[in-house]
Design a protein around this nucleic acid. Sequence first.
DNA 1: GGGGAACGACCGACTAGTCGGTCGGTCCTT
DNA 2: AAGGACCGACCGACTAGTCGGTCGTTCCCC
Lengths: 180, 180
Amino acid sequence: MTARERILDTARRLTIEAGSVPSMDVVAVAAGVSKGGFTHHFRTRAALLAGLAEQSIDSMDAALDAAAATGDVVRTWLQISMAREESDLYRALLMSFSEGGTDTSDLLRRSGEASARWERLLAEELGDPVAGSVVRLLGDGLVMSALTGDTLPSLEAILGWLDTRRSPERIHERDRGQET
Amino acid sequence: MTARERILDTARRLTIEAGSVPSMDVVAVAAGVSKGGFTHHFRTRAALLAGLAEQSIDSMDAALDAAAATGDVVRTWLQISMAREESDLYRALLMSFSEGGTDTSDLLRRSGEASARWERLLAEELGDPVAGSVVRLLGDGLVMSALTGDTLPSLEAILGWLDTRRSPERIHERDRGQET
DNA sequence: GGGGAACGACCGACTAGTCGGTCGGTCCTT
DNA sequence: AAGGACCGACCGACTAGTCGGTCGTTCCCC
């Protein structure tokens, strides 16, 4: 495991634990690397944020692309959005992006592009652009409200509510599962 | 207008403009008050955040309570969630709450209680607890995703999508408007 | 009713610490 | 010996919070 990977993994873990991306010094110490060693791999804080974001977006892309093959995009999207770790990381990253100071405009842009990509997958599976937007926003809402520790409805309850929204033939198609 | 109100209003404006709650010094200068005068009214940063949160939650409570009288809770909730200023302020506040350091646990608690209150109003109007949760989360998602500047569906599109989800007699009831 | 004590509002310099970032240097590999 | 990986002391900007002090007002007692 290279030092860069070690730094990135440590930063990810600390971010999830703390709820916000820690300072460069803290990450460096926790990763067992000197300040100089840290800046050798991540010249600026924005570079660290970009690394974390790339890691996160890539894994989400992979999960949703795989789910698209079996018609499970909606379930996967909501499932990941409800996962504690993913929520904390994603929220902390978005928070850091809007911190004043370091230029994070292209991070926000890339994050927005990823959201649009995922929304497209959702819309395709649901056969309705508005439904795609709604479910995508629903996931973002799950991430957001995990912060205040609200009691959330179960994944199955949400999926059930969504299913009654769909036309009968689509429900039937879904019930047949992955045999298509 | 008292100095305290001036500080609070200035902090609110700067927060919306910057996307995050500015430092105490910045707020003090912008409000035309000295550092000492500032701390006289807000002893700690957490006190400032609490002031902003109270202001925000109170206005939301007032709007939704008024909407409940005319059966417009869902529309009002989504409308406010889509409003630029409200989104920016609400997001910035939640972000500040999870900043490490100052004790903001009761701020998060109060925010969570407010969310639960609003979700109850939504569920009552929709006649379904799961639908109430979903719409509440939808609003949170709108707030969240306003950060990345995504193109959002129109309010009418979302309301239309939600209406087809409701049972026929309820749609009819809604179409008759406020005459009940 | 006049003098002084007490009060709250406000001031601004100061502290102690954290932050992101820089830089000259060392070590190890090829 | 050359270059990438890594080291750690250092810098300046900024942060939240403290503290001693200055006003104008009010209230009380003689």
